[in-house]
Design a protein around this nucleic acid. Structure first.
Lengths: 340, 340
DNA sequence: CTGTTAGCGCGTTCAT
DNA sequence: ATGAACGCGCTAACAG
């Protein structure tokens, strides 16, 4: 009798309900979608039937006919990075509030795959949030029409006129430099991130700008990276230099450096000051707590969702958004030590 | 002429391709799906047409007719927790390798919503990985048939016969206790997690078991929690007690405690030893580095995927898996100080 | 080997 | 207010 042996209620279709309630498919559809033009008694019968069959309309079929999936894609370069985790979290929470689902794709920094990954993810969704800091401008621009509606994170809106949400890395770095300068630091090391990343270029431009305006300070670029290990590995170079402060590309690098320095008995901030970037949740719990340029990571995700949502509803694109980081002064930065 | 004003190639259907290539829909379908029973010349024409139209079959339509979405859902209680992040990462990477997509849902520890969240997510996918440490056994058991195929993470397989992958928190805690005991600690504090979580109950049972076997040690339960702040807040109680070691529920709590203790000038491990749990990536970069019970977090995700994949392919459920944590001894634990 | 037909499960015109 | 018929885009029987 039963079409399936499963005890579960899955596989029930709209016509099962229609049959049980003794009405037509359309009536069931109307009731399920809250159409008011249905006789109250009939509607009740349908609801009961649906309930007893534990019926819910197939999202798949609805998606196909309605032309919308109630799902958005998020592509990030590295899910292991707290910044993207926070972004995803903010986005996912905001989307969920409006009954949207989130398809997540980690490109694992794989530049070649990133493009097809994004396109594939996008095809199963209504829109996409793309976080691809290292994708070349031209490639991105070419990709954009295929992805629309799309919101970019941490990319200049310049090349293509796309909706973007970003953090102002230039401003953040500038403030960090001023902070260190104010503490008397004149010899500063910078641990750069990936050369291809826009956010690194922004930091660099802030540095050279600052250096131009302050002939008395000297900023040296050391070997950097984006993770703990990179910061850890930079410790020797830092210790060997006569820099009194180091700007790490991000909090992860700063934490790795902090840890390695502590192992070597180098005191922070007495011997050397260290600053991070992003203000990930861990930053305030390091020893000493990390001075950093705070970026509203989750808010970035939320705003990306807001913009995507507007796009999905055919609204005019909102103004692009850029958050100016806030320097949070904690224990890892202090007055420059007197010259040796 | 064009049906849409969009310059994009989206909206192209299989019949557009068929028309352009001068063949029927089925032929296009066959070519796109790599059926070998198609004339080489025709196939080439179809491929060209598809390429020139930038055509790709709609995943939605395929899903509907094939009865599979190539997508799996992952439900976690808190995306901000590095443990679930790692799990998601391992899972997502493994799934991606087999061309599966991942729909992620964060329940934000909301017990009421968790159930509907899981069901809704599941309906858009082929299967689901459920990470719901606090959901009551009965509720979970009732939910299971509706979710199948499903893989559970960190749940006892006992109540329902479901596929599970987990870490052995009992064993981990036991090893941690032995580690501390070997170091001479006899008064130990435990900072518990959520009382409802199975992983907390496992730790507790390991503790009472150990206490039973070692009348000379005394384990006291203090106010705990699951995040930084909770560990941070526990510092006063820890400092006020005469315990020489503290077992934090997880690494996050341990880090919060470490940080607060350091602020108070309490030395770790000279004055008090601290252990975490999970071995999140940050654990080795704290000051001092954290002794912890290491759980192969990403591997947990990978294995969950393997099991789900087997289920999806109708294979017999694999043996359930439990990883025995490994104690990683780092700087935060040391010999018990001589009694005051 | 190819084309025609019938669904997948649903929403939505059309008539009634 | 309700039902019949069509179509969303595609795959898989079935014919030829």
């Amino acid at each position: 009798m039963a079409r399936r042996s499963h005890p579960s209620s899955r596989g029930r279709t709209i016509s099962d309900v229609a049959e049980l309630a003794g009405v037509s498919l359309s009536t069931v559809s109307r009731v399920m979608n809250g159409s008011t033009t249905v006789d109250a008694a009939l509607a009740e019968r349908v609801r009961e039937a649906a309930l007893s069959l534990n019926y819910t309309a197939s999202p798949l079929a609805r998606s196909l006919v309605l032309g919308k999936t109630q799902t958005v894609a998020v592509v990030v370069p590295d899910l292991a990075n707290p910044v993207f985790q926070g972004m995803l979290r903010g986005l996912s929470s905001a989307a969920a509030r409006q009954n949207y689902h989130v398809l997540v794709a980690d490109s694992f920094e794989n530049l070649e795959e990133e493009r097809v990954l994004a396109v594939e993810a996008r095809r199963r969704c209504d829109g996409i949030v793309l976080c691809a800091p290292r994708m070349p401008d031209e490639e991105l621009t070419a990709l954009l029409p295929e992805l629309a509606p799309v919101v970019l994170i941490n990319r200049d809106p310049s090349p293509a006129k796309a909706s973007t949400v970003s953090a102002d890395y230039h401003s953040g770095m500038q403030q960090l430099l001023e902070h260190l300068y104010g503490l008397g630091h004149r010899r500063i090391a910078y641990l750069p991130g990936s050369a291809a990343a826009q956010s690194n270029r922004k930091r660099l431009s802030a540095i050279s700008e600052f250096a131009d305006g302050h002939p008395d300070v000297m900023v040296t670029e050391l070997q950097g990276g984006v993770g703990f290990e990179d910061g850890h590995a930079a410790a020797d170079a830092v210790a060997a230099s006569d820099d009194t402060a180091v700007l790490a590309f991000n909090d992860l690098v700063a934490m790795g450096l902090l840890s390695a320095l502590s192992e070597r008995g180098v005191r922070v901030p007495e011997d050397v000051s260290i600053t991070g970037f992003d203000d990930i949740p861990f930053a305030r719990y390091t020893t000493p707590p990390l001075t950093t340029a705070s970026v509203p990571i989750e808010e970035l995700g939320r705003q990306a969702w807001e913009r995507l949502w507007a796009l999905l509803n055919g609204q005019a694109p909102a103004y692009n958004l850029s958050f100016g980081p806030l320097v949070i002064t904690r224990g890892s930065s202090g007055p420059a030590p007197a010259a040796a």
